[in-house]
Design a protein around this nucleic acid. Structure first.
Length: 606
RNA sequence: GCGCUCGUAGUUCAAUUGGAUAGAACGUUGGCCUCCGAAGCCAAAGGUUACAGGUUCGAGUCCUGUCGAGCGCACCA
């Protein structure tokens, strides 16, 4: 007997790009039960009609965009019309009839609509039960165990030393940490790392501009960072031949550590940069388990290149190259004519060091999309050098950030600095806090302003598709109203204060629903609350935290509809008060859990 | 010139990877605090998804072409 094709669920799908929506179907979920019921009944039809199992489709179900179309929907009948040589509406009707006979608990109604959609409506009892589960699982709700036992290293952020961080870096680190948390949420063991450029021509430029400076004249970290930025511009805009020769000499000396004066200068200023980076990481909640540096991996890269000369790498015009063209890629230089490794050459050393230090199943490297062609080459070369590591390394490409005045460039000074953004957002949030709570001690105002400012900043960067280039206009992008971090925080804070009031009035906060007589607004809320785990899986598989942002914002809006329409504490009957308090708690839990994955904190009051 | 990515409301972006009437936010206009927090809510206006074909039950999404933008095309990262 020939075999029907496998019907995937969320545990079987590793990566985005898979052509099925069934990644959100977790084992035991109602969605999976519905899908499987459709599959098994369809198989009966298949066998009855004596069709070839080879042509049996992958059955997909999804949440209709419009809730009036039900909670789950399946369009398989439309796809089968041709194969079965039958009207899609008839197929849908027959299938719906058969699935209905399975009496799946939780389904209140199955509808067949127009051309041939089968729509499943969930019962209030099931939704209520599901919501009780949210409160039972508390902060664990939203976590799934799809990838337990797998370890992934995520390399992100990657700022160079000797340069001030700008909005682009902020986007990278905020996205990077969101990816780290999303992967943890689906069960991965995650190693969060970064890799910084601390040797090479870009550093040489800064050192060139720096020479002759009395470093002791710059006592504070901010002065020091300012000096580095100015020096970089000085070196970067110098175009005379003599200066270029000198910078090449400095570069070479940096690699070989052959010049005492340059070494000292480099060591001191490198520490400045790293201190500043760490300060920022603490502020934005970036946690890194291991900092890799070009200076510690380049020799290893050179050795690997030398060991694979003639096989993987070849010499050309004095440089050492990898002939990517043989694989339809670019041919790239891995070692320059001067004998220094390039970005690509160093990368080789980096990956080999990672493998030596850690045992991981995957390593995702998140970089800007301008690096995309290089990474295809680097990964190809890597797989040639380490043939047993095929499929381990993967690069993920983020879109670039430009600003209204054009493309950012540290060299010309057309940049918005990361810290300026954070500070400005802090100040704006402080002004709002001050307006509302003028009597609060300054210390508390500052703490609150920081939570709100950082939250709004992170949300503003996470709500876009990571792969899209974005224009970052601080006036417009960073907002405390509408689709913003502050909006979500506000909804949480308002629920918190509601619950506090309820407690003061000794109302019951049991994680149980005593009524199933829901209003339209309550029902809509219930129909969205249970979806968080699916959203997290979706966001993780596609590396798209913006899906989680959209969901949370939509949930918050749905809650506001409910809040506006339904009095909670002042509801007419005790059991309605209890039911609504219960809904408030569940919403708060889901919002908090989702925001935690995004790295956004919720203040107690605001 | 070649390659990759992209083109959606005045602006910034979504759109469950081919699903149902393309959604938000900002901005604009008008309304809602004697009522659980107005950083909130409601309403209005705003679209031939750059353009032209094609594929099919169905296209913003896939294929072809045109126009336009960004990025990349060996000793920078």
């Amino acid at each position: 007997m020939s075999k029907f094709p496998d019907q995937p669920d969320s545990t079987q799908i590793h990566k985005r790009g898979t052509s099925t929506k069934n990644y959100i179907l977790t084992p035991g979920s109602l969605g999976l039960q519905i899908r499987d019921a459709i599959v098994s009944n369809l198989r009966s039809i298949w066998l009855h009609e004596e069709l070839n199992p080879k042509y049996f489709p992958i059955v997909e179900i999804e949440h209709p965009a419009d809730l009036s179309h039900g909670d789950w929907a399946c369009s398989i009948a439309l796809q089968l019309a041709k194969i079965l040589k039958q009207n899609p509406f008839e197929i849908a009707t027959e299938l719906a009839e058969l699935v209905g006979q399975d009496n799946i608990a939780g389904i209140a109604k199955i509808e067949v609509i127009k051309p041939g959609f089968i729509n499943f409506h969930l019962s209030a009892a099931w939704l209520a039960q599901q919501t009780e589960l949210i409160l039972k699982q508390a902060e664990k709700f939203g976590q799934v165990e799809n990838r337990v036992g797998k370890t992934i290293m995520i390399e992100h952020t990657q700022p160079n030393t000797h340069k001030a961080l700008h909005v682009g870096h902020l986007r990278n680190t905020v996205l990077g940490m969101a990816e780290v948390r999303l992967h943890r949420a689906v069960g991965y063991e995650v190693i969060s790392t970064t890799y910084g450029g601390d040797v090479g021509p870009h550093i040489a430029k800064c050192i060139y501009g720096l020479r002759g400076e009395d470093l002791t004249k710059y006592p504070t970290l901010d002065d020091q960072i300012k000096l580095l930025a100015d020096s970089y511009v000085k070196g970067g805009t110098e175009e005379s031949e003599a200066a270029e020769e000198e910078m090449k000499r400095i570069n070479k000396a940096l690699y070989e550590q052959s010049d005492e004066e340059i070494n000292t200068l480099w060591e001191i200023t490198r520490e400045w940069s790293i201190a500043k980076q760490k300060e920022i990481y603490v502020r934005v909640g970036t946690e890194l388990e291991r900092f890799y540096w070009e200076s510690e991996v380049w020799r290893r890269g050179v050795e690997l290149i030398q060991q694979n000369m003639g096989t993987v790498f070849t010499e050309s015009q004095g440089a050492i190259i990898f002939e990517g063209e043989r694989y339809g890629l670019h041919t790239r230089v891995f070692m320059t004519g001067q004998g220094t490794p390039t970005y690509e050459g160093k990368e080789l050393g980096l990956e080999s060091l990672k493998m030596e230090e850690y045992d991981f199943d995957f390593n995702v490297i998140q970089v800007g999309n301008d690096h995309e062609p290089y990474f295809s080459v680097v990964i190809k070369a890597l797989e040639e050098v380490f043939p047993d590591k095929k499929g381990v390394f993967e690069s993920e490409h983020f879109g670039m950030v430009s600003i209204p005045s054009g493309k950012m460039s540290s060299r010309t000074g057309n940049v918005i600095f990361l810290e300026d953004i954070l500070n400005e957002m802090h100040e704006r949030a402080y002004a709002e806090v001050d307006k509302r709570y003028p009597d609060l001690p300054a210390e508390k105002k500052n703490a609150l302003a920081e939570t709100i400012g950082i939250g709004a900043t992170k949300y503003a960067l996470l709500k876009y598709d990571p792969r899209q280039d974005i224009t970052f206009d601080p006036e417009q992008t960073l907002s405390f109203t509408g689709d913003s971090g502050a909006y979500l925080q506000y909804v949480c804070v308002r629920i918190q204060s509601l619950l506090e009031k309820a407690q003061q009035q000794h109302m019951s906060l049991d994680a149980q629903l005593s009524t199933l007589d829901f209003s339209q607004e309550e029902l809509t809320l219930l129909r969205k609350l249970y979806r968080l785990p699916e959203i997290i899986i979706h966001a993780q598989l596609e590396y798209k935290p913006n899906h989680l942002c959209s969901y949370l914002f939509d949930l918050a809006q749905t809650f506001n509809d409910f809040y506006q329409a339904c009095p909670v504490l002042n509801a007419e009957k005790q059991e309605i008060v209890a039911a609504r308090l219960f809904l408030c708690q569940a919403t708060l839990q889901v919002l908090r859990n989702g925001l935690a994955v995004l790295g956004i904190a919720v203040p107690e009051k605001m």
